[in-house]
Design a binder for these strands. Structure first.
Lengths: 343, 343
DNA sequence: CATGCTTCTGTGAGCGTTCACAGTAGAGAA
DNA sequence: TTCTCTACTGTGAACGCTCACAGAAGCATG
């Protein structure tokens, strides 16, 4: 009966088959496929029914060969991969980008640049024009891949403000500084006056900005900044724990801690618990990221949510615009304070 | 100075440029590119230096146009996406597949079939031959996308035993039954005799197999199976909690619980704690998956680790073999018992 | 009636590669 | 020498599409 369903794949219909079926020329079919300008309604109709009837799908390879576009974009992760792949926000980002691109019928190629070998291969792949643009996840300062892509003129949109790439590269980021400001203001509003901070790594824009927000709000409140209340971490849980211990040793009267990531905040909670401080009664704790760690913690963490769904949508929007010839752009999106038990 | 670095992308060199540079014909360059058979060492050498000198990278579109292959594969997720995207094992799988493919210079296209619209688009994209094969993640029984792809003769490898797809589709899975057997044997070895089980959904192979392993071991030990000790869940944390409560009500003398997922096991721990049972003193608890939930739990969960890194590698291996013309194959990989505090 | 303009349509060329085929050169055998 | 065989090389055609161009048809304007 249905021989078509058994065994190998059949040769798909070409634009030629559609043209014959519709009684028009290749050119007309092509025009219908690409926007339908300069096509009579009758011809367009005939072509569309022929497309449905034959089950025609454009051969992207043939199209790309002549247009020079690939109609696909790469999602490049040059971050040490373990860290980001375990971050649920990364999942949201990846999923969001894939879906936003799918709406434009653009496939997403996942590229992981872990080893130097992979880095080389991917760079060559991209610069050879096999993708039209790249969505970049990399907080690596002075990332050689990113630099090379930028130099080659590949449309590029980074997630988060990239370091050392000049102003020529687009990026989409959450407003770290403003998020930090919100949190510190929140702690002040609760009546806390000895507010400590466990920063992120200060060689990343995120780390710097979040600390800057902390300083700004305290200054604006007319408070003098006590450098003993500032300790730095590296976003890891362990560094949060160590940071809190240093903080307690240096300033035992601390009554609130703004922690630059939820994971570190978990460590801070552990250290505070061990030191016999009650949260939030003795010390209020604010995190950053609104990761699952925030709700898994006890008490559940008050934190700053980054709009990851909007970030992915904006990254795709900016990238497509740039592929379309527009200039690089920076987009900063607002964060949101999520109040829970820890403050 | 370096005009090449400013502005747009330059036109990349073609096989023609390489041929001219090397003083040979297109055909010879092509032969070097594809295995180098029937090429004199001198010519091969000349071509290779010309490739390096010109920075030539093959134009995959042109190649695909004539070979009919795309030299790319799709990673298709038809699962309700939230669930899998939050599963860290999914990350390991996705990363593993990407890297295994990268070793063969094959890009991975991420495809998420959430809505019906996406489903249609993706099906058409794949059956049109835009990917050579598909890595499928779907526990959805009777998945229409998978069925359509199978019918169209698209090489397909599923992660986990697929339901209702006949025997014609390859899959790679962990040995659920054997994993369950290991865990129950472990509980028996600890001297437990009233071993309950919270199963996974029994319309999935995983759920069925894990329960089967439980039954087998108890039967082999000459014990009679008490159906009151068997309650079913749906892998969610909440269902674990509810399951444990039912178990305690029906068989208060239970001294161990084998739970078919770590997430459910967390729920079980919560319920046991609330009921005043100590773990593992009063009741030993064994999970399944070795997800981060296992170490996040207190006490840390004894669990069954699925070899996700090997699963991804095998999926890619089987898919490439199938693309190469081999018959579909099923691969079952062994699991590993990870002992922690809960038993 | 010619002229121009707009809207529409068909045609040939070409994108960069692989593949089949025809050919060349050199070695060894008759 | 001549033939055959092997190892290698070059060439034209094709893959399926888009693009530029030429031309046709319709309509208003001079």
């Amino acid at each position: 009966m249905t021989m078509s369903n058994t065994g190998g794949r059949r040769k798909p219909p070409t634009i030629h088959d559609v043209a014959r079926e519709a009684g028009v020329s290749r050119g007309t079919v092509s025009r219908v496929l690409n926007g339908g300008h300069y096509v009579s309604p009758a011809a367009a109709e005939a072509v569309n029914t022929a497309i449905r009837k034959t089950g025609y799908v454009v051969n992207r390879h043939a199209r790309s060969l002549i247009t020079g576009r690939s109609d696909s974009v790469g999602f490049l992760l040059t971050e040490p991969q373990e860290r980001f792949f375990e971050d649920p926000n990364f999942n949201v980002l990846l999923r969001g980008c894939t879906q936003a691109l799918a709406a434009h019928d653009i496939p997403l190629l996942l590229m992981l640049a872990g080893t130097d070998d992979e880095r080389r291969r991917i760079t060559r792949y991209i610069t050879a024009g096999h993708v039209d643009g790249v969505l970049l996840v990399s907080s690596h300062s002075g990332d050689p891949v990113a630099e090379e892509l930028r130099a080659a003129g590949v449309p590029l949109v980074a997630c988060g403000k990239p370091i050392g790439l000049g102003s020529k590269v687009s990026y989409v980021a959450a407003d770290d500084r403003d998020g930090a400001r919100d949190m510190v203001r929140h702690l002040l509003a609760l009546g806390r006056r000895r507010i400590g901070v466990v920063t992120g790594p200060l060689d990343t824009p995120g780390g710097v900005e979040r600390l800057a927000g902390y300083r700004e709000v305290l200054s604006e409140a007319g408070m003098e900044i006590d450098e003993r209340l500032i300790v730095s971490g590296d976003y890891s849980r362990a560094s949060g724990e160590a940071g809190a211990e240093r903080l307690l040793a240096r300033a035992p009267d601390v009554d609130a801690v703004f922690v630059a990531s939820d994971l570190m905040a978990q460590g801070v909670l552990t250290a505070l618990h061990r030191a016999g401080r009650r949260v939030p009664d003795d010390v209020a704790v604010g995190g950053f990221d609104d990761s699952p760690a925030a709700v898994a913690a006890s008490p559940e963490l008050t934190t700053i949510r980054q709009p990851w769904d909007r970030i992915s949508a904006e990254m795709v929007r900016v990238l497509l615009a740039q592929i379309g010839g527009e200039d690089p752009a920076a987009v900063i999106l607002p964060t949101e304070l999520v109040k829970r038990e820890s403050t």
